[in-house]
Structure formats: structure tokens, C-alpha cells
Write a protein that binds this DNA or RNA. Structure first.
Lengths: 219, 219
DNA sequence: AAATAAAATGGACTACAGTCCGTTTATTTG
DNA sequence: CAAATAAACGGACTGTAGTCCATTTTATTT
């Protein structure tokens, strides 16, 4: 368990190593072609109404080529979200650093993070929905990138809060981190938005009330 | 919003009305035949390794017949779970009545209910997994039966706890009820069990710590 | 520049979900 | 009991995900 007050998620979410073989020129060209085509189709018809065959055809490549780059639609969507996830991450880290400098509590930082995450989830819902449809979530923890770094951030902040005495040391941080993020999984999030018709503010407030309860409970 | 201290979920989960047309004899026979066949196949190969065509063939009926009774695999699994859900429900209601009689708090009852639900989820995980795979969850709130009555129970208890002054009246009960149930959705539950390797006790304890925090926080 | 090896390509192919509709069977009515 | 009607039936059919592999393209070596 990391006990550093400041969690440091991985930098670039897509390529981790340095010894990665360079991609052949035609392959690289096709990757960008596919991504651009996918964006165009998604914009026109909506993410859920576009299938892999459509993308392959529109991009003028075979299905084999498409699947060579992206194992499934979720994988492709993950690639489309990569940049924005990195930016969001950067912004959050900066904000948290600032708040620490301003003497704000870690639980306050957690509240801020969850608020921001609610908005991020709302904005990117269609892509996140596809990303989460796959078993991506299950594969060896490391592989659901979105959940992974969200989890790292939340558990890092909870750990820091524990060390700082803001919450009880009895709490199971690993569990609580998952549990706080659970209602932001797209199926539940969509259910709350579309069926229960909760506003984003209501969802944010609900999550905050949970963190507030944790902070207020006796150790 | 129901403010009764005791939530009363619907009795029989499958058939609600009284004016339901009687099923033709061959249809009824096929339904039981299909269900029995499905159970046998599920037992032999595991729920996830059996598809609808397999079931139809093993039962000696056409796919059309199968789909006429059950819209999809999740629907079929829901039918298989119907009895056990009703029993679980009955047991819980009885237990809660007893606890109320013994002067236990509603939040204590909530803890008990969540504990039991963790075990129920673990035992029936494969079926629940199929049930939740479908958009069943999304359709008009009423239609995800498992979630629906779990939600009714939890929100009912929270409401009662509020009235009894056990938790802050500021809390958004509808939100909290969803949020407490969210980590028991099968994708997250399986992730915690299989990847994080959490024990059932750890999961129960984690949920309890959340309810405890709610109960302990000032109003 | 030609030969070779490795990687990439396209589209046919398999597998499964779910639909459709012409035929059969149970039930009701006369 | 026979005819009429409505429900149920079976399996062919469509649509989509994802795999496979013979062929083509790129990069490397001589």
C-alpha cells in the first residue's frame, strides 16, 4: 500500500514501456485513419449505433486490420479517450497539489475529485459505456485503465487522510475506494440519470455525503 | 416516498396481476421442460458456457419457442432465481420484524440485510451475472426485479432510520440506497472477489463500515 | 538492388443472439 | 363432434462480434 500523501498515477496511459517495437508505417497510418473514421462515425450516428464492421468499411480497411489494432469496440473507445483521461488526471493532480498547499484536508480533496469525476463521467458516458461493457474491468486489475487510476487516486487520498487523522484508521481503504467509485460505473450512473432522473448535482452531493460521513465518524 | 418503518416488497415476483390469461397446456409444459433442461445444462457446463441454442436443442424445442417464453438468457435466469429470491425476501422480512420487536435499530437491521445480501450474491453470482448483463437494469426501474426489491428494502430501512433519528435527515436516501447496493452489482463484486481476492467477510465488513459511518455522523 | 524475414492486410468464416413467419396444436364455439 | 380461432411451434434467416489464414506490403540484410 502506498502511504505517500500524493498518489502518482502512471503518465501516459497507453504506452508504458520503452522497449516497444516501432510500428510499421502502414500500420501507424491505419491506426490514425481508423481512429479518425471512428470519431466521425460516432459523431454522426452516436457511439452505440456504430459497429466494428461499419468502422472498418468506412475506413476502407478489412475487419482483420481493425481487430489487429483494437481487440474490440471498448478498446477502440479507450484509445479515443486516452488523451482526455491524461489531461483530466493532470488537472486533478495539479488541483490536489494546490489544495494541499492551501492547507485543505485530504477528504476535501477527495470531495473535489469525486465532483470532477462525476462531470467527467457524464461528459464521456457513451465512450465509457463501451469501455466498461467488455470484461476489461476484470482483467488483472491493471487493465481497466479508467478504473485503475481512479482507484489509485481515491485510495491514495484515503490513505493520506488516514495518516493525517481525518478518518478512522480502522477503515478498509481498499474496499471503501472501490465502493465509492462503484456508483459511477456507467450502468448505475445511467440508471440514476435516465430512470431516476437525478441531476449531476444530486449525484455529486450524494457522494460527498458519503465521504463526509466517513470523515465525521469517530475513530 | 414510503415512510413506513417496514418496507413491503411485492409478494410473488413473477406474476403480479390477477387477470392474466391462463397459459395453454403445451406452453406450460414447455416452460417447465425448458427450465429443467436449463438447470441441468447449467449444472453440467456452468451458466456462462451454455447458450440459448444449446438449451433449445437439449429441451427438444425450437429457438422460437424458447424465446417466446424468455426474451433472453437473463430473463430465463431470473425465472430460475424467482423462488429463491422470494424465500430470501420472506426470511429478511421476518428477521427484520424480529429485530424491530427486540428493539434493535433500523441501521442494525440494514447491516444484517446487507450481510445476508452479500451471501446471497455470492451464492447466486452466475445467475445474477446473466440477469444483470441485459439492459434489464435500465428498463423503467420496475423491471430489474432483483435491484428493485433490494432498493425498496434498503431505502425503506434508511427512511425508518431517519424517522427514528438514527441518521441525519439531510441525507439523500434514494441516492444512498443505490450507492450502498452499487458495489454488489456482479461486475464489481466479481472484481473484488476474483482480482482483489476479498473474502466475503471483508466485503460485508466494508459495507457495514459505510452504514456505521452514516449512523455515527452528526445530523 | 534483390532476397529474405517479419508484420500487416482483407475478407471469408465461425459462433451466437435474436427475429420472422408458415405450419401445427390446443381450446372454444355452434 | 366439427369448425373456427387464437396461441404455440420450429427452424430458417438476419445481424453482429470476433477469428483465421493465404496474400501482400514493409523493413532488413547481403
Amino acid at each position: 500500500m502506498e502511504s505517500k500523501p500524493k498518489p502518482i498515477p502512471l503518465g501516459n496511459l497507453a504506452e508504458t514501456g520503452a522497449d516497444e517495437k516501432v510500428e510499421r508505417r502502414d500500420a501507424a497510418a491505419n491506426r490514425t485513419l481508423i481512429l479518425q473514421t471512428a470519431v466521425a462515425l460516432f459523431d454522426e450516428h452516436g457511439v452505440s449505433d456504430v459497429n466494428m464492421a461499419d468502422i472498418a468499411q468506412a475506413a476502407g480497411v478489412g475487419k482483420g486490420t481493425l481487430y489487429r489494432r483494437f481487440n474490440n469496440k471498448g478498446d477502440l473507445c479507450l484509445a479515443l479517450l486516452d488523451t482526455q483521461m491524461s489531461e483530466f488526471q493532470e488537472t486533478m493532480l495539479a488541483q490536489m497539489r494546490q489544495m494541499t498547499a492551501d492547507g485543505e484536508t485530504y477528504m476535501a480533496q477527495l470531495g473535489m475529485f469525486l465532483d470532477a469525476l462525476v462531470h467527467f463521467t457524464a461528459v464521456h458516458q457513451p465512450l465509457l459505456c463501451e469501455i466498461q461493457r467488455e470484461g476489461l474491468f476484470l482483467l488483472s486489475a491493471t487493465l481497466s485503465l479508467p478504473h485503475f487510476w481512479q482507484y489509485m487516486t481515491v485510495s491514495g487520498l484515503l490513505q493520506a487522510a488516514t495518516t493525517a487523522g481525518e478518518i478512522s484508521p480502522e477503515l478498509d481503504i481498499a474496499y471503501i475506494a472501490d465502493a465509492l467509485l462503484a456508483p459511477l460505473k456507467t450502468d448505475i450512473f445511467r440508471f440514476q440519470r435516465e430512470v431516476r432522473e437525478f441531476s449531476l448535482e444530486r449525484i455529486s452531493a450524494g457522494l460527498r455525503s458519503l465521504t463526509a460521513a466517513l470523515a465525521a465518524a469517530p475513530s
